[in-house]
Amino acid sequence: MDISFKQVNYTYQPNTPFEHHALRNLSFTISSGSFVAIVGHTGSGKSTLIQHLNGLLRPTGGEVSIGPYQLMPGKKVKDIKVLREKVGVVFQYPEHQLFDETVKKDIAFGPKNFGVDYEEIEKRIPPILDAVQLPEELLERSPFDLSGGQMRRVAIAGVLAMDPSVLVLDEPTAGLDPRGQKEMMDMFYQLHNAKGLTTILVTHSMEDALQYADHVIIMDHGTKYMEGTPEDLFVQKDKLQAVQLDLPEIIQFLRKIEDKFQVSLPYEGQTISELGIQLKEHLKGDVTDE
């Protein structure tokens, strides 16, 4: 589903001393099937933005379109339930939302609420377990007996069980150890490709944005600051620093190498081990620079 924001405003507690403009005149479009990263420093409006994607919040100004659904101020959305089935949101620390007796019941809760029949749910569960890499033996266990990483996978399985076409991920790897982080992101990337999802990733990690996203939206003070491909955005050091964002570390380091050694060494998606070989060749004492 294509998503567009047209001059969206959102104000928390308007006309009170706590009034806070979380989104201001925000416009962008996300085309169906793309993998978009939304980055921005703490408090830039990212979380408010994603709550508009499934109608948890309605704009106080402007218009949000998600496929055929429109969110506008003062107007109730007719098919909000359908919208919420189509747009799966994985919130921060989704394992905090687990509640049912067994893993299976917890996963089935979402689709059941949306009126999906029992047989269909039964059919959906095995491939989802496979996707989130949970063994089938866990289905009858209490979700609360699982490790943190497994609990998070169960919660994600619950979102996937609704068979959404848009997947919104709010810092999905927060709190996981490095291996868990990598496994989790690889899993989402695989799902994105296998199911042709539109994936929207809210992240602090420029590394993840660089590695997985094909489009990046940078937020600042509730509005769009920049957007483009990660390769284009993540070389603009001064502009990023102005909104308290860093370049991905590999690009930072390449810049420092270029400055110190007066060589040209652009970022071309090289791995760390490829970079090691490049450095060896470029910096060898007896080789003249390009």
Binding site: D177, P178, R179, G180, K182, E249, I250, Q252, F253, K256, I272, S273, L275, G276, I277, L279, K280
Partner: peptide, 29 residues
């Protein structure tokens, strides 16, 4: 054991593998 080392340490280790001498494990850029 499920951990990972920072970019600088990784790159230093890769450089070591291709025989670029690293006198001490670097902590920063």
């Amino acid at each position: 054991i499920g951990l990972d080392i920072p970019f600088v340490a990784k790159l230093a280790n890769e450089l070591g593998k291709v025989d670029v001498p690293i006198s001490q494990q670097p902590l920063n850029h």
